[in-house]
Design a protein around this nucleic acid. Structure first.
Lengths: 195, 195
DNA sequence: TTATTTTTGTACCAATTGGTACAAAATATA
DNA sequence: TATATTTTGTACCAATTGGTACAAAAATAA
């Protein structure tokens, strides 16, 4: 067995708790104190295991993407690609309806927040951004192949537009958009992604 | 004449300097020290004239909207409504091309940043949000009347979509979107707002 | 049991935050 | 000139920030 005093927590579990906390609060507004409380570990354990606030945040973004990718591949066995795209849009909407809050995308939020302030995080976000974009291109292409989205528009353009709408909607809701405007956006989505 | 020692600055001027600073930095990330430096006044003058960081920020949002509205009415004498809409979209794009930075909309940024953290600012943003939306509805209706946008889609839906794209684009650029994706969004705009 | 290794708890730290207190300076009125 | 009024400059403040130091605790290996 491993020598020395054993860890009293599982790294993966407390990492995902940190991820949820960062997702709620963003980067700067996530205080170390709150983070430790959310993770259920003490400061010394935190710094020994995760090195710094920035380092664990970067790991949280990575974990966020891993979990998201896994979710898509899982859903693809039972849902159409277009339904998955629609589900992304409806996520912010049901969040606000059920919990009264919107979180948006952890990584894209970090992109906006850390822009011009934390270059390391920003460039990591930029890498992830490309991954997101490619994932959406794949989904659009699949939906086009399945006949649910017209093949007249390019998959790249539709993926870009979709990401823009997705992130724009979350921001709009945070800024105070009500049911009527949310409905407008849904209509816009159906119009853009018609067969 | 007014009794007592005279002010060494003009309130309106330093207010607009504060507005620019907040526009660059956001709310939390705008430090009092930086704000004072940008405004060119001392702490005591600041607190006597503007009361608090939050109060001056609220005044900055108000000023931002006043200046924006004035800009639109000015442009409407020489430009078509559709060109003004297009100019909004191109603003973020030329910002990134010329200065290498994107600021987005001061008020909408505040909406995202202050969401669930500063209820007073959030509810003020919500008020302004409605004003923005109505302004865009007016512009769309005008463009429809001028024959530059199809009358088949509702003005409200187009205004909502436009705001979403506008704010989504700024966020996308901050998160690392490159020229190709920006081009995709421009294409999407022209497609959505065709005659 | 003793020595070694690792984790955990607590106390501490310098820097920064927005905001206040108060005296000094600059003006108008009497 | 003396007094009232307002602005400005400086010193200060408590609270919070992310991060470090170090001893106590808990395990294995000898």
């Amino acid at each position: 067995m491993k020598i020395g005093r054993p860890k009293e927590f599982e790294e993966e579990i407390v990492l995902e708790r940190a991820m949820e906390y960062f997702w709620d609060k963003g980067y700067d507004n996530a205080s170390l104190a709150g983070l430790l409380k959310a993770m259920g570990i003490k400061k010394s354990s935190f710094y020994q295991t995760f090195e710094s606030k920035q380092k664990i945040f970067e790991r949280c973004m990575q974990r966020y993407i891993e979990l998201g990718s896994k979710e898509i591949t899982d859903k693809l066995t039972t849902q159409s690609a277009k339904d998955i795209l629609r589900a992304y849009l409806n996520r912010s909407i049901s969040e606000i309806q059920e919990y009264g809050e919107v979180r948006g995308c952890l990584v894209m939020n970090a992109g906006a927040e850390c822009y011009k302030k934390y270059p390391d995080i920003s460039s990591l976000v930029k890498e992830h951004f490309i991954f997101f974009h490619n994932s959406f291109i794949d989904l659009v292409k699949k939906a086009q192949k399945e006949g649910d989205i017209s093949k007249e528009k390019s998959a790249s353009m539709l993926a870009s537009s979709f990401m823009t709408i997705l992130n724009g909607l979350a921001l709009m809701i945070k800024a105070g958009a009500g049911e009527d405007i949310i409905h407008d956006i849904q209509e816009h989505f159906e119009e853009l992604f018609k067969a």
